[in-house]
Amino acid sequence: MQIQEIELKAVNRAEAYRYMGFGNTEPDENIMKIIDEKEKELLGVMRPKFIFDCFDINKNDKGVELIGTTLTLKGEAVSNHLKDCDKAVIMCATISQDVDKLIRQNEISNIFGALVLDGLANAAVEQLCDVAELFISATMPEYNRTWRFGVGYGDFPMDTQKEFLNILNAPKYVGVCANDNNILTPRKSVTCVIGLSKKEVDGEASCSKCNFKDKCAISKEGGSCGGKQ
């Protein structure tokens, strides 16, 4: 198991604009100034961290068993995702509680600021996951990796959350818990599975592979939420 704390020097603005609801357009100068200020505030309070562990896997009727743990990853989608893999990395990433507080403060007197911060924070946590993926690859250079597959995505059950966090000891090491409805707290946190294989695997998420490809507004407009079209 490894825990890393990293520093993000800037937020991926194009992604952030999309999360804020600007689509693929750029905001005007006046709004841009506010976003600049909010980005500074966000960078000032966030503490991006991730924790991961790597397990051999065993595929059976129930799903994908992580050997040495009690966890079996259930659902067709995740089994399919890991079909050519020998190992699976489970990861939890967060940009910490203070971000929740900052957004909460803004929601009281500056809802626009809150909206901007929310979008910036969403982009930041994805950036953190990108860094984490590269880090994981670097620690296991002999393996190819799949793209990250989020808990709750497709038919991968959300109620995996508690056990998933427990195996990583995430509440203790990165301060991430789930509530009774399996929502991660702090809010800007991610849990996901990455497959590792010595064979060539599909390393890049793309719209064509996405469960939401038929209903996604971003995709219809020619955009993408992280992967390629």
Binding site: Q97, D100, T185, R187
Partner: peptide, 13 residues
Amino acid sequence: GPIGQLLEPTGTL
């Protein structure tokens, strides 16, 4: 030890 869920306002406990 800790309950394992975050208290309000970050969590819902």
